[in-house]
């Protein structure tokens, strides 16, 4: 995998050491105050905002030559964004190995998904975050949302959930469902499906979040309490398409719906390509 052409003239992992130190300082602060958004000096990266500039900067700051990097986009290792980010790091970080196997990876940069295979201690999840502020649709003033976070004044978020139930009859959004971290900070889990929210709770892996355009970092340290917001009589239910993976037969994974022809044919497949592939290989063996 890592045989790709090496780019000359760049510092290890593209960012200069001063920038990495700045980002690491912000990350330390983020880990010390779980769920709290920490501002950082986001740099221009060689890809557009919205493609993972925040995640790339976090990965570049924590990655070392001994690491094994996996990059997923919508759970898949072979989509454009995942391939180009993986190739980018292979070119600018000599010695770094890349992989598609969740179990082998020490750093997993992700957009939209948490792998199906349970994470273990020592692994680092890096999330690409488009909008770090969970309250932004409810309160447009940034100064005011910061005050609400400082005072832990989250009644507003609950009002939004109330409205969801009143309109749609159930709690929660299908993705980016807000969570309380450590019983203190309201946090956007990034646009992962609500199906993945429970995987954040008490995860043995370190979880880092980077929002490049919004210039914010935040983190969930290992074994931290992460609760999805809900009501007592309308508990949070992770959403999942009611189906079976057409390739590996899994009934407990997050599924993508594929349209197979223009006559209404469609099937479900696992969104986590590595997990699905592993299961297929095991079934053959």
């Amino acid at each position: 995998m890592s045989a790709a052409m090496q780019a000359e003239g760049y510092n290890f992992a593209y960012l200069d050491e001063g920038t990495k130190r700045m980002i690491r300082r912000a990350l330390l602060k983020a880990v010390a105050v779980p769920g709290c958004q920490i501002p950082f000096g986001s740099r221009e990266m060689p890809l557009p905002y919205g493609w993972g500039t925040g995640g790339i900067q976090v990965t570049a700051s924590v990655v070392g030559p001994d690491d094994v990097l996996k990059v997923i986009d919508q759970g898949a290792d072979d989509t454009t964004n995942a391939v180009s980010i993986r190739r980018f790091f292979a070119r600018v970080a000599p010695g770094l190995r890349t992989t598609e196997r969740t179990a082998e990876a020490s750093i997993i940069q992700t957009r939209h998904r948490i792998p199906e295979l349970p994470l273990r201690e020592g692994q680092v999840m890096v999330y690409q975050v488009p909008q770090p502020e969970p309250l932004f649709r409810l309160e447009p003033r940034r100064a005011e949302t910061r005050r609400l976070h400082a005072l832990a004044d989250y009644g507003l978020m609950q009002v939004k959930l109330y409205e969801d139930i009143a309109r749609h009859g159930r709690v929660g959004s299908s993705y980016d469902h807000p969570v309380m971290v450590g019983g203190r900070y309201l946090m956007s889990p990034s646009p992962i499906p609500s199906f993945d929210n429970p995987k954040m709770h008490m995860s043995p892996a370190l979880q880092l979040f980077g929002a490049g355009r919004e210039r914010r970092l935040y983190a969930v340290p290992p074994y931290t309490d992460v609760r999805s917001l809900d009501f007592e009589d309308h508990p949070f239910v992770p959403l999942r398409a009611n189906g079976t993976c057409a390739l590996c037969g899994a009934r407990d994974t997050y599924l993508d719906e594929m349209v197979t022809d223009d006559r209404g044919g469609r099937l479900f497949v696992c969104s986590d390509t590595d997990y699905c592939g592993t299961r297929q290989a095991e079934a053959v063996a």
Binding site: G155, L156, Q158, V159, Y162, I165, A166, F231, E232
Partner: peptide, 19 residues
């Protein structure tokens, strides 16, 4: 926000969590 949400906001702000 709906009328119900408006009235409920203060209740939720002081900790009511039963829809």
């Amino acid at each position: 926000v709906s009328a119900g949400g408006n009235v409920g906001e203060r209740l939720m702000a002081v900790g009511a969590r039963h829809y």
